[in-house]
Structure formats: structure tokens, C-alpha cells
């Protein structure tokens, strides 16, 4: 079985994101970029499934500008086998990405697709669900545990109410939660090896996919800063305020 894992290059989660003064976007110049954190969990899970003898090839797919090859290399250095990079604008929408993934599925015929549950830049949380609907495979979103069986898998999902377990037939698509596993580090020898692993580069046009955006970013602005409120004299006053003024208790 082949596993297809999607990875996205995003501003590193440690970087304090700054909105540009002209409200056209956030500052990305010379900012540290990394693999989207839950995508690392997806790569790690694929490696573990392969190491358990349940898969034989891991393909890494990334959609974006040239530099997303670095992100693919990171995944290859963790142990994945080869990469596919689809050139597109970095702000490509999930709708278009899911169409690209669907097309790659048609070409590569994987038995499992793993994605991060959400990209930490646009926070859309859509691509896995959209892809699932497009290719008509079962979906297991927000996965915190994946147990592969003969023709199916039991997936534990992190839902608002707690945990839910579902059984999905293979092939299926899962979106991975941060709690799924602890991603490994890429070792130096593996980074060297990864430099020689193949990455196939295509454009969205070559795949025949229209990636025209549907949404217009009118502006990107800073969230309003909170104003200092009032000081209360004692606990009794606090409770009164919470009860009758803020009405939150």
C-alpha cells in the first residue's frame, strides 16, 4: 500500500506573526518557515504504519511556491520515500488544493491519505474533508489514534465532547491531530539521503486544475487590543458584576 501525505509550508509556530502596515497580508519576508505542525504528525504516522509493515511507500505532496520543496525535503529526511510538488501560489484555497490532491490520488492510487487537521496559517480546516468528498473515500478527521486492520481501520477522533471512535474502510483519508504521535527528528545522515530522493515537480495547470481563487481578501488587520477594565473592591462586588453586568455566571 502507498500512503500519500500532504504537507504545507507555513510561518513557524514560534514566530510572532505581524500584520503588514498596508493591511495586504502578514509579513513573510525572511521569516522562519516550517512544516505545518499537524502535518509532521501525519508524516510520522505514515512512517510508523510503514515500519509496522502495513505500507510500502510514502509519497509526500506539497502545493505551493518553489520553497515548499524544502518542506518536502524535511518529510523525506524524516523517512518518506519521494515527493511531489505542485507549483501554485502560496495562498491557494483549500478548494483548489483538494482538487489537486484528488488528481494525484487518481495518478498514484494510494491506499491511505494522511493530512494535518488544519494549517496554522489560514486555519481553514477543510482540505481533508473536501478531498474525501471529491474522491468518495471515508474520512476520519481530527485523528488521535489510527489502528490499521485488514481492510479497515479504527480511528479515534478528538471531538469537542471527548473522543469518538469510528471504523472506516480502506482506502480512507485521515486528518491528524497533534496528539496522534510525537514526530521524530530528522537525523543528519537522513537529511543527506533525502537530498537524493526524487521530487516530481508539476504545475496545477499541467494537471488541468483551475486554481482561481473564489475568495477576495479585502484586508488583513490586527485584532483589536483589549482595553483595561475596572478594578473591583472585593469579591462580593466581583460576583455581582459577573452576574448582573457581564451576565456570564
Amino acid at each position: 500500500m502507498k500512503i500519500l501525505v500532504t504537507v504545507k509550508r507555513v510561518i513557524d509556530y514560534n514566530v510572532q506573526v505581524r500584520v503588514k502596515a498596508d493591511n495586504s497580508g502578514v509579513e513573510k519576508e525572511n521569516v522562519k518557515m516550517s512544516m505545518n505542525p499537524p502535518d509532521e504528525n501525519a508524516v510520522e504516522e505514515a512512517l510508523r504504519i510503514k515500519e509496522a509493515g502495513k505500507a510500502d511507500e510514502i509519497i509526500i505532496l506539497s502545493v505551493g511556491e518553489d520553497k515548499c520543496q524544502e518542506t518536502i525535503r524535511t518529510a523525506l529526511a524524516m523517512g518518506a520515500d519521494r515527493g511531489i510538488m505542485i507549483k501554485a501560489n502560496d495562498d491557494i484555497e483549500p478548494l483548489s488544493v483538494s482538487k489537486i490532491v484528488a488528481k494525484i490520488v487518481e495518478i498514484e492510487q494510494p491506499g491511505l491519505i494522511l493530512m494535518g487537521k488544519q494549517a496554522i496559517d489560514d486555519d481553514s480546516n477543510q482540505t481533508a474533508q473536501m478531498t474525501s468528498a471529491l474522491i468518495n473515500w471515508p474520512q476520519a478527521t481530527f485523528a488521535s489514534k489510527i489502528e490499521i486492520e485488514e481492510n479497515a481501520a479504527i480511528v479515534t477522533r478528538e471531538i469537542d465532547e471527548g473522543l469518538e471512535r469510528i471504523k472506516v474502510k480502506i482506502p480512507f483519508i485521515a486528518s491528524c491531530d497533534l496528539r496522534l504521535n510525537e514526530p521524530r527528528y530528522a537525523s543528519l545522515p537522513n537529511i543527506m539521503k533525502a537530498k537524493k530522493k526524487p521530487i516530481d515537480i508539476k504545475s496545477a495547470e499541467e494537471l488541468g486544475i483551475d486554481v482561481k481563487p473564489r475568495l477576495e481578501n479585502i484586508k488583513i488587520s490586527e485584532p483589536p487590543t483589549r482595553q483595561k477594565g475596572v478594578m473591583v473592591a472585593d469579591v462580593a462586588e466581583l460576583v455581582q458584576k459577573l452576574k448582573y453586568e457581564a451576565k456570564v455566571i
Binding site: V26, D122, D123, Q126, E216, I218, E222, P223
Partner: peptide
């Protein structure tokens, strides 16, 4: 295209949603 996690509605086609874990707000028109 879906518009996720809307926190404010400007009009029938324009919405505000947080991005970058709420460190920025995007006003998007569909």
C-alpha cells in the same frame, strides 16, 4: 470555497475570520 470560523458578518458576502490563531483578522469577500 468555504469560509471557516467566522467571527463577524459585514454583509451578505463579506465576513471576518481569524487567521494565524487569531493573531490577524481577515476580511474576506466571497
Amino acid at each position: 470555497a468555504q469560509i471557516s470560523d467566522v467571527i463577524n458578518i459585514e454583509s451578505e458576502d463579506t465576513f471576518i475570520r481569524p487567521i494565524y490563531a487569531g493573531n490577524a483578522l481577515a476580511t474576506v469577500k466571497s
